[in-house]
Amino acid sequence: MMPLSMAKPGEPVIIRKITGRDEIRQHLAELGFIVGGEVMVVSELGGNLILQVKDSRVALDRTMANRIMI
């Protein structure tokens, strides 16, 4: 497993684990980040990511992206 921030842009990957406080995990889940789901990095800016998940675009900062393991 590695953090999502290390994923290559443009390649879909599968989420294996999401760590962190319940509240933040829940919010991530509502945005479409769930274990077993697919996600793809669209763009990367200084560790902050723009991701494609469940047909929508979500921006995450580096600390959040590091909570999502692939």
Partner: peptide, 9 residues
Amino acid sequence: APFVMELPA
């Protein structure tokens, strides 16, 4: 707080 935001098309 960590930055989480949906981006519209």
